[in-house]
Amino acid sequence: MMDRLARQGMILVGCGKMGGAMLSGWLKSGLPPASVWVKDPNPAGWLAEAGIHLNEDLPDAPAVALIAVKPQMMGAALPEVARLGGGGTLIVSVAAGTPIAAFERAFGPGTPVIRAMPNTPAAVGRGITAIIGNEKVTESHLSLAEELLAAVGQVVRLEDEAQMDAVTAVSGSGPAYVFHLIETMAAAGEAEGLSPDLALRLARATVAGAGALAEDATEDPGQLRINVTSPNGTTQAALEVLMDETDGFPALLRRAVGAAARRSKELSRDE
């Protein structure tokens, strides 16, 4: 797949944190810098020395145009690449809240469009991205998108675009939930007498380590929880609070994820 990109070239529209992380991954994977065209009104300093085509005229028929701008910048960004519609170029979007239909309108009929939802751990190569394509997308298109997005982490395929709202609520917004968990664990540690620096260090390392253990383990998270919970011990005492069905984690996270999913639907309707 990278050979095809090297021959035909690819375009990256928007090179902020997410776009920059992906570009860095592609270059490390062996994609020639001369095969990449980047359009960004405020490019990071390292791009000028990367050997890519920065804000230059675009090729006529690149293999892929990846849209990585914020939704509010879409109106200015899409006209620059709209001529690539029609089928010769795969359009991949990582823009939150922008449905496939919006890109079909911008690029015209016959255009293969893949909508992707990565999350912020992509910046350190530990993200997960969900993808779904329109009816013009082939297996070859999906494989190409998977290879590109694998540069920043795992990739999963969805069965229906409607699932994207739930994906947004779980993995797209999910890192913020984890960051808040770290905040609140550290604050609770302070309340029990730890210094702020020590409490934060303990909370960060605990969440990062537990996440790595959960990802690598053969057991499911429920079994891992049981493994570290001694009967009538300290962990059980805490879990009796956290697992309360009325105001513990189960009810709280259902409400939080539900709120995020509803807002994702609203944003898509506003588009």
Results as ranks from 00 to 15, higher is better:
11 I>Q: 03
13 V>Q: 03
14 G>Y: 06
14 G>P: 04
15 C>Y: 05
16 G>H: 03
19 G>I: 10
22 M>V: 15
23 L>W: 00
25 G>P: 05
30 G>H: 01
36 V>I: 12
37 W>M: 02
39 K>W: 03
40 D>P: 13
43 P>G: 00
43 P>W: 04
45 G>Y: 01
45 G>H: 01
45 G>N: 04
49 E>F: 14
50 A>T: 11
52 I>K: 00
53 H>T: 06
56 E>V: 09
60 D>N: 13
61 A>D: 15
61 A>M: 15
62 P>E: 01
62 P>G: 02
62 P>Q: 07
63 A>R: 02
64 V>W: 08
66 L>Q: 02
66 L>T: 05
68 A>I: 06
72 Q>V: 08
77 A>H: 13
80 E>H: 13
81 V>P: 06
82 A>D: 10
82 A>Y: 02
84 L>F: 14
88 G>Q: 14
96 A>C: 02
96 A>E: 05
104 E>Q: 13
104 E>G: 09
109 P>F: 08
118 P>R: 04
122 A>Y: 00
122 A>L: 00
126 R>K: 09
127 G>A: 04
128 I>S: 01
130 A>D: 03
134 N>T: 00
137 V>K: 10
138 T>W: 02
139 E>Y: 02
140 S>A: 15
143 S>P: 06
144 L>I: 04
145 A>Y: 07
146 E>D: 10
149 L>C: 14
153 G>Y: 04
156 V>S: 01
159 E>L: 07
160 D>R: 14
160 D>Y: 13
164 M>L: 11
165 D>V: 05
175 P>V: 05
176 A>I: 07
177 Y>K: 08
181 L>R: 11
187 A>N: 04
188 A>K: 14
190 E>A: 04
191 A>P: 14
192 E>M: 14
192 E>F: 14
193 G>S: 12
195 S>P: 08
196 P>F: 14
198 L>Q: 12
198 L>N: 12
199 A>T: 06
202 L>F: 14
205 A>W: 09
209 G>E: 11
209 G>I: 08
210 A>F: 09
211 G>S: 07
212 A>W: 12
213 L>Y: 07
215 E>D: 13
216 D>P: 03
220 D>R: 03
222 G>A: 03
224 L>Q: 08
225 R>C: 09
226 I>E: 13
227 N>T: 09
229 T>P: 13
229 T>G: 05
230 S>G: 08
230 S>F: 00
233 G>W: 07
233 G>P: 11
233 G>C: 01
234 T>P: 14
237 A>P: 01
237 A>H: 07
239 L>Q: 12
239 L>D: 07
240 E>I: 05
240 E>R: 07
251 A>F: 10
253 L>Q: 01
255 R>W: 12
257 V>W: 11
259 A>N: 05
259 A>H: 10
262 R>A: 15
267 L>M: 14
268 S>V: 15
269 R>K: 13
